[in-house]
Amino acid sequence: MTNHVTQQRIQADLQVKASIEPQYEIEARVDFLCSQMIETGQHALVLGISGGVDSTVAGRLAQLAVEKARDKGVDARFYALRLPYGEQKDEDHAQQALTFITPDEVLDINVKPASDALLASLEEGGLTFQDAVQRDFVLGNIKARQRMVAQYAVAGAKSGLVVGTDQAAEALMGFFTKYGDGACDLVPLTGLTKGQVREVGAALGAPAILVEKQPTADLESLKPQLADEEALGVTYTEIDAFLTGQQVSEQAYTTITNTYQRTDHKRQLPRTP
């Protein structure tokens, strides 16, 4: 199978368009969130806000969706959650995102006590690690899953649906924690490349500092604010080019396709006999 054919297949699987009209995407995705809430009989949307462009854009779409639902007579609300592990180094960006989103309600939930307690219990129960790096990696995934536990707790209390922030670039690279930030009910950024998310963010009027911010999952305590691109071994420019059918270097192509294959289990439902 040629490189181009492989790219086309993956592009179709991840529902990527070569180019977008941002205003159309805004309206379509707001409509999606609103209709899903109404059809399921739920009355709230819940999303963790980190200060990155993905959660900023998804958060604003969620707020617009509940406002549209209220116009239709539905008593709907958007709950924006701050979910720091202790003190977040770029907390100012998270606060700027909240100011832009103007959510109906904000809940501030520190996931550090629960995350640390679980890791301690695991070690007390006999779990050992190869080294400090592996221990930190496991803790990072615990943080992501504790954040999702918190979001579903709020959703359960408020009859809501949890909104995810996954977009096509992260889906391609499997760059999310399984049953952590990868667990959600609605994924409004599906099919958008990283660059297209930025386009939508700019069209929504999000602060430029957030739209152009260097992405970081910020899960590793030993490497705080580690850039996604450093962790991935490939740039978002190359990932987006791959997703939109453009030619990329052989090194980028190999890294992307190998990662896509290796992380396939993350994009699938649990397997059965």
Rank of each mutant, 00 (worst) to 15 (best):
V149K: 09
V133Q: 15
V133T: 15
P215Q: 00
E21C: 10
I239G: 00
R70K: 14
D13M: 09
N110R: 00
F175K: 03
G126C: 13
Q96V: 06
C184P: 06
Q130M: 03
D185L: 04
G160D: 01
L98V: 11
R82Q: 13
Q268C: 06
P84I: 03
G233K: 03
Q214V: 15
L172K: 11
L64F: 07
P103I: 00
R147P: 08
Q7N: 05
H265W: 13
S35Y: 01
V66Y: 08
T235Y: 03
V5T: 12
G164L: 11
C34W: 04
L189Y: 03
S55K: 03
I38D: 04
D108C: 10
R271H: 15
F175Y: 15
Q36N: 15
V30P: 12
A120V: 08
D264W: 05
Q151A: 01
R135T: 10
Q7T: 10
S50K: 02
D90A: 05
V57K: 04
E220F: 13
L81S: 06
T128W: 00
A202P: 12
A168Q: 06
V106Y: 05
P207M: 01
Q11H: 11
T165W: 05
Q95I: 11
A58Q: 12
S159N: 14
G205L: 01
F176Y: 12
R9H: 13
R262P: 01
C34L: 13
N3I: 07
G73H: 03
Q42F: 13
R271A: 14
R135P: 04
Q23W: 04
V200W: 07
T177Y: 10
